[in-house]
């Protein structure tokens, strides 16, 4: 039992969680409405990397994430995790959405412990490990509340804890902080990085917010407008642990300009209102081209 205690909630196997997306196309819809949401996409994510997906609305980010999660089948190509093809949803691949999916009838502690209950772990043991995770996401003292009694940010933290208790090889997050106010979102980003320092699982994080992507990621993937293809693959090498001051550092602002430029170009092409422009204090005129890895 001691070994279990020591490894506890924070343990995970080293060197797992490598995702390979190989020439994947995903067609959605039926009959005449059928179209390719994702087209011939290649993406290799090494174990333990924090990757953010950026792209215009409707470009297929959620679809790609769904394929990695196993909820959506790739029409062509293959998605593998550590060399095994993905066949369906599995606790190895934890998924967190913008709107929480906590069980309203379970207290926080039992929501978090759910994955262990499904594995047949005894009540005392699973509660002990769940409590550890509840504390890890900063919700110690709230374990006996019901989800409806928590704020939106707290609910998302529970959601993260509930997924992490399964020691997932991959953490898939689809705009998890998209519904939160700016201050809470900043707090959640820091909390997520904090947790990730302790549990170095592979993370694929979809966001609309360039600041968020650059602040969190080791690597930012920019996708084209529908059908979603890879537009750019930008390594983000800022040292960790990262702090909010980073957002105003010149290197950060420079990369942000590149991203805006890329995304703006994507949007101009399709004459759609640009939701990202709102997020930018910089006008498009300020954007300068610099060295980035254009994948095409």
């Amino acid at each position: 039992m001691n070994a279990v205690n020591q490894s506890s909630a924070l343990a995970r196997e080293a060197g797992v969680g490598a995702i390979a997306v190989d020439a994947v196309s995903i067609a959605l819809g039926q009959g005449a409405d059928r179209f390719e949401a994702v087209q011939k996409l290649n993406l290799d994510i090494p174990s333990g990397q924090f990757v953010c997906l950026l792209g215009p609305s409707g470009c297929g980010k959620s679809t790609l994430l769904g394929a990695i999660a196993g909820h959506i089948r790739a029409t062509q190509g293959s998605v593998t995790l550590d060399g095994e093809p993905i066949k369906g949803p599995h606790p190895d691949r934890g998924l967190v959405f913008q709107h929480h999916t906590l069980f309203p009838w379970k207290k926080i502690i039992d929501n978090v412990a759910f994955g262990l209950k499904m594995k047949g772990v005894g009540k005392a043991e699973r509660r002990r490990r769940a409590l550890e995770l509840v504390k890890l996401v900063g919700l110690g003292g709230f374990e006996n509340r019901y989800p409806a009694q928590l704020s939106g940010g707290m609910q998302q933290r529970v959601e993260i804890a509930r997924v992490l208790i399964n020691h997932p090889r991959v953490l898939l997050m689809d705009e998890p902080f998209g519904a939160l106010d700016a201050l809470t979102r900043n707090m959640m980003q820091e909390l997520l990085l904090d947790v990730w320092e302790k549990i170095r699982t592979t993370v694929v994080f979809v966001t609309h917010d360039i600041d968020e992507a650059l602040f969190l990621a080791d690597r930012v993937i920019v996708m084209t407008h529908r059908p979603g293809r890879l537009l750019a693959d930008i390594p983000i090498d800022f040292p960790r642990p990262r702090h909010r001051e980073l957002l105003t550092a010149p290197e950060f602002v420079a990369i942000k300009r590149q991203c805006l430029h890329l995304l703006h170009g994507e949007h101009a092409q399709f004459k759609q209102p640009d939701p990202l422009e709102r997020l930018s204090p910089l006008g498009p005129s300020l954007i300068t081209e610099t060295q980035i890895h254009l994948s095409q």
């Binding site: 196993g70 909820h71 599995h90 934890g94 999916t101 069980f103 759910f114 994955g115 209950k117 509930r162």
Partner: peptide, 22 residues
């Protein structure tokens, strides 16, 4: 809510557990 069923499944719940737990 079908989202809750999908969530339970991806957290490892089998059909019987989905019935009892969700």
């Amino acid at each position: 809510d079908p989202r809750l069923i999908a969530t339970a499944r991806s957290l490892g719940a089998k059909p019987v557990s989905i019935f009892i737990e969700v």
